[in-house]
Amino acid sequence: MVNKEYILKRLGLAVLVMFGVYTIGFTLTFVAPGNPAQAALGQKANKEAVEALEEQWGLNEPLPVQYKNYLINFINLDWGESFRYRGESVTGILASRYPKTMYYAVWSLVFAIVMSIPLGLIAAYKQNTWVDNLSVLVSQVGISIPNFWLGMLIIAILAVWLDLISVVPDVPTGSLWSFPGFFTHVTDYFGIIITLGTALMARNTRMTRSSTLDVLSEEYITMARAKGLKERTVVLKHALRNALIPVVTSIGFNLLLLFGGAVVVETVFGLNGIGKLYIDSIIRRDYPIIIALLLTYTIGVVFVNLIIDISYSVIDPRVQLR
């Protein structure tokens, strides 16, 4: 049975959090004046022109009005034009950058999950053997290695020295999300996929390992073993399902980490995704882009979390809000 009250509560909370994200985003961009109009027109531009542009962008209004206006415009999907690329709409810029980042983000997630689950399961199953120790070591290193340095190593060793992979391919984003393209372009983005995926893989391996250890020590596994079921059946049937839960529920958090990673790693790989766009916009004070990127991304993550939580509550009705 679907717990309607739970879903409503969860939804309400998500909306509230989005509101908080907007408030923080707004405070951190619009409140800090960097005089974007002057910057856009150049230092020599005359005062009238600057003021005209400020009026066009709505920057002459008092802050509370801007706060309200921007929120309304955002909800109406009217995200205005970029301060930096004059004449280009924010929507257009985001639409050109998102598919690229999402492409390797999705593949990194796939890489992380596909690698981590068997690794974590084997480690837990063979606890305190060399396999386990190795997996612990790998996940510790994976968590500790800064992603941008890993990216540099991959470029220097795999691309330049061994010449195994290519770097900085400019693939038209349309073909990334087409049928064969989605799979064939993996080689083009191999470096960044591994770079972004390593940290996630390390985290997920740890989680899988510890949750599997918990499960393996539980009563019913012992029972199943006692009943004479084959070890492999026991592990696969009972442990796997329970071990998957933390990995699946943390997909939203993984997506957040991917955005944070993309901000640095895209610089290393010279890719023009949303990470690079974000850091450029911060440096150039391109408010509409900053805030639109923040909101779209966090809304996406909150939404993913919402779906995961709700479907989880449908599967297991005992789950309640906090």
């Binding site: 908080g20 994200v21 951190l28 961009t29 957040l256 955005f259 944070g260 911060i282 966090t298």
Partner: peptide, 11 residues
């Protein structure tokens, strides 16, 4: 709800 690095960069 923010990636930590992104939040810090924004601040």
């Amino acid at each position: 709800a923010f990636p930590f690095l992104v939040l810090v960069i924004t601040v």
